[in-house]
C-alpha cells in the first residue's frame, strides 16, 4: 500500500490587496491557484520527485504533505491518516513524528541562537522524549563529529549545516522525509556529498523521500518516480528511464532540451519560446498551450485529464504511445 496518497489536491491563495485599496481601486479579489487537482502516490521506501520551474506549486505541495499548509481541496493521506481532517489527537501525533522535512536554505533553517545539540534533539524533546546522547549519535550518522554538538550553527559551512538539518529530520525516526530543494543552495562537490548521504540513510533506515527540486540532474540520479508540474498541475508522471528517454508531454520535452548539458559543447539549440504565465490568470484549457509546439484547437478549450500511456501518466491531448 502507498505510504503517501494525494488525491485531487488543490490550494488557492488569496492574494487580494487590502480591503480599502480594493474598494478605492474597484478591483475584485484576486486568487492564485498554486496547486490544482494533483493526484499521485508514493510507495514506501522509494524516492518520489516533484519537478517544476518557479510557480509550479511544487513547494506548496511539499508544505501540504507535511501539514504546514491546509489543502483548499482534495486530501493528503499519510499511511491512511489525513492530517488536515483527522480528529483523533493520538493519531495526529503519531503521524507527525513519522513526517519530517529538509529545507532549501541551510542558513535559515537552523536557529542561530541554539546549540546544535538542542536543534537536533528538538523533535524528540518537544514530545518529552529522552534525548541523552541522541544528538551525538545522529551527528555521527550524518558524518559530523560528536564534539560539534556544543557548537552554534554559524560555525559550520553550508554543506555541514545541511547535514545538521538531516540529523534533526532523523531524530524522531520518521518514515517520510520531504526534501524541499535540499541541495540547490550548495556547491556541486558538496551537493554530491549530501545526495550520497541521503541515499545511504534511505537504505539504512528504510526512508521514503519526496524530493522537490528544479534540478533535473539531481532528479535523474535520485528518483524512483518523477512527477512533472507546470503551473500547479501535474503534467506527466513516470519512472526516470521513461521520462528522460521518451518524454510524452511537450513541456517535459522542453525542460529536457533547455537544461544545459555537460557534453553540450557549443550547442546551438533553439531555446524554448515564451515564459511561465501569470498563475493568477492561467491560460484556458491546457495551461501549457501558449508555449506548446503541438497545441491544437482542443488544447485552448479543454483541460487535459491525466491518462495512462504505458508506464507513464500524462495530461496532454496530443500525447501518444
Amino acid at each position: 500500500m502507498a505510504l503517501v496518497s494525494v488525491k485531487n489536491l488543490s490550494r488557492v491563495f488569496d492574494v487580494s490587496k487590502p480591503w480599502l485599496n480594493r474598494v478605492l481601486e474597484r478591483e475584485p479579489k484576486a486568487f492564485l491557484t498554486a496547486v490544482s487537482e494533483v493526484d499521485f502516490e508514493v510507495e514506501p521506501q522509494t524516492t518520489y520527485a516533484l519537478v517544476g520551474e518557479s510557480g509550479s506549486g511544487k513547494s506548496t505541495i511539499g508544505r501540504m504533505l507535511v501539514g504546514l499548509l491546509k489543502p483548499s481541496g482534495g486530501n493528503v493521506d499519510i499511511d491512511g491518516v489525513d492530517l488536515a481532517n483527522e480528529t483523533d489527537a493520538a493519531k495526529i501525533d503519531a503521524i507527525r513524528s513519522d513526517i519530517q522535512m529538509i529545507f532549501q536554505d541551510p542558513y535559515a533553517s537552523l536557529n542561530p541562537r541554539w546549540r546544535v545539540r538542542d536543534i537536533i534533539a528538538e523533535p524528540v524533546a518537544a514530545r518529552g522524549g529522552k534525548t541523552d546522547g541522541l544528538a551525538e549519535k545522529l551527528l555521527e550518522q550524518v558524518g559530523l563529529s560528536v564534539k560539534d554538538a556544543g557548537k552554534f550553527p554559524h560555525e559550520f559551512s553550508g554543506g555541514q549545516r545541511q547535514r545538521i538539518c538531516i540529523a534533526r529530520a532523523l531524530a524522531s525516526e520518521p518514515r517520510l522525509i520531504v526534501c524541499d530543494e535540499p541541495t540547490s543552495a550548495l556547491d556541486v562537490s558538496v551537493q554530491s556529498q549530501v545526495l550520497n548521504l541521503m541515499s545511504d540513510l534511505k537504505d539504512n533506515f528504510g526512508l521514503t523521500y519526496v524530493l522537490i527540486t528544479h534540478d533535473l540532474t539531481v532528479v535523474q540520479h535520485m528518483a524512483d518516480r518523477i512527477g512533472v508540474l507546470y503551473l500547479g498541475r501535474l503534467v506527466e508522471e513516470g519512472a526516470p528511464e521513461d521520462l528522460f528517454d521518451a518524454p510524452k508531454h511537450p513541456y517535459t520535452q522542453m525542460l529536457l532540451d533547455a537544461a544545459p548539458r555537460m557534453d553540450g559543447f557549443g550547442r546551438e539549440a533553439t531555446p524554448p519560446e515564451g515564459e511561465i504565465p501569470d498563475p493568477i490568470n492561467p491560460p484556458s484549457g491546457c495551461a501549457f498551450h501558449p508555449r506548446c509546439p503541438l497545441a491544437a484547437e482542443v488544447c485552448h478549450k479543454e483541460r487535459p485529464v491525466m491518462r495512462r500511456l504505458g508506464n507513464t501518466r500524462v495530461a496532454c491531448h496530443m500525447a501518444e504511445e
Binding site: S97, I99, S109, R168
Partner: peptide, 17 residues
C-alpha cells in the same frame, strides 16, 4: 518566515513555545 520556525511548527511546537 524563516525555515527554522517552520521546522519547529512541523514537529508540533505550539505558538507560545
Amino acid at each position: 518566515n524563516k525555515e527554522y520556525v517552520e521546522a519547529a511548527r512541523l514537529i508540533g511546537r505550539g505558538s507560545g513555545a
